[in-house]
């Protein structure tokens, strides 16, 4: 039957269209494996995963915001700010776990504030979070007058960066745990459906009984929380809270999400895609470095890849 084969073919085409970027990633990775010296090794793999853990974690939170049809530019500065707050709390000899929970709560609250400004005052999220970016990078600088705060708490460092469990280092564990939690929240729970509905068609979502404002505020809170988790990881990595740790990370995070196939128009995307996007950026950076290209050229290539990925994922 002609009419019955139509949707079949359409969905097969959708599958190809959705995964073409993965094919390209695979090809480029294969190129590095074959031509970059010592690229194919366990140590390279774990180094790449460690490097990309921070961007991966933030990209998972960002995915919720972007599928809602919004954007969060403040994640980098929220990470810096969180690292500072965490370090200061530890400095006051607050136990590591308590400090971590407080910081995560603060991150979620910052995100929620952005969400409220976006939904209740109807300001484009691009501008609200651009303002938040500026405010929190400023705050991170002013708390200590730009002075870094060193961290001596071993529990904290082990929990967020230096420790390892079952032979895998903490940042890789965090990536795995967050990916799993994010995956279930977005793809398996009612909330995730509401996120897709809100970003896909806000009017229809409201008609279907979805509280779109609440869904968006919660998405921003998730993004704020993952940003502050990343901030804690950054602080643990450098054993200090430093006000400029997260500067500029938002671009990498957004790039990862876009490259992973999530649409900036909202309503479409996946957690795994964002993590793959983040890891791919890491592989690309590492591979180009091994091949002897400067970081500046890497930036140019990253920009070009965003354009290619977005054009291919256009719908």
């Amino acid at each position: 039957m002609k009419s019955s084969s139509m949707p079949m073919r359409a969905s097969a085409m959708n599958f190809f269209r959705d995964h073409i970027t993965y094919v390209i990633f695979l090809a480029i990775t294969l190129y590095f494996v074959l031509f970059a010296p010592h690229f194919a090794s366990v140590s390279t793999a774990s180094a790449v995963l460690r490097i990309t853990a921070i961007v991966s974690v933030m990209a998972i939170g960002m995915t919720f915001v972007i599928i809602c049809g919004e954007i969060d530019l403040s994640v980098g500065s929220v990470a810096s700010f969180s690292g500072m707050i965490g370090a200061l709390l530890l400095d006051q000899s607050v136990p590591a776990y308590v400090a971590a929970l407080l910081v995560l709560g603060a991150g979620a609250s910052i995100g929620a504030v952005s969400g409220v400004l976006v939904t209740k005052l109807r300001i484009p999220s691009f501008l609200v979070t651009l303002g938040m970016l500026s405010i929190f990078s400023g705050l991170a600088l002013t708390i200590t007058g730009t002075r870094p705060v060193s961290i001596v708490d071993d529990d904290f460092s082990n929990l967020f960066w230096n420790g390892s469990f079952l032979g895998m280092q903490a940042p890789i564990w965090w990536t795995i745990v967050l990916t799993a939690v994010g995956y279930y929240l977005l793809h398996q729970m009612p909330y995730g459906r509401r996120v897709y509905a809100t970003g896909g068609n806000a009017v229809a979502a409201r008609f279907s009984g979805v509280r779109t404002d609440g869904v968006k505020i919660f998405a921003f809170a998730i993004s704020g929380m993952t940003a502050s988790l990343a901030g804690l990881m950054l602080a643990a990595r450098s054993t200090a809270g430093n006000p400029s740790l997260g500067a500029g990370l938002e671009l990498d995070v957004i790039a990862a999400v876009i490259i992973g196939g999530t649409s900036l128009f909202g309503g479409y995307g996946s957690i795994v895609g964002s993590v793959v996007g983040a890891i791919f950026i890491g592989i690309l950076g590492f591979g180009l470095l091994v091949l002897g290209l400067s970081t500046s050229i890497q930036e140019v290539i990253k920009g070009a890849i965003i354009i290619i990925a977005v054009s291919l994922n256009r719908r």
């Binding site: 128009f265 400067s294 930036e299 140019v300 977005v310």
Partner: peptide, 20 residues
């Protein structure tokens, strides 16, 4: 393409070229 995505990419490219 959405203007934010497109101009984000060109911004990154220009920043990279500046560093070069």
């Amino acid at each position: 393409l959405q203007s934010i995505a497109a101009t984000l990419a060109t911004m990154i490219i220009c920043q990279g070229l500046s560093l070069v």
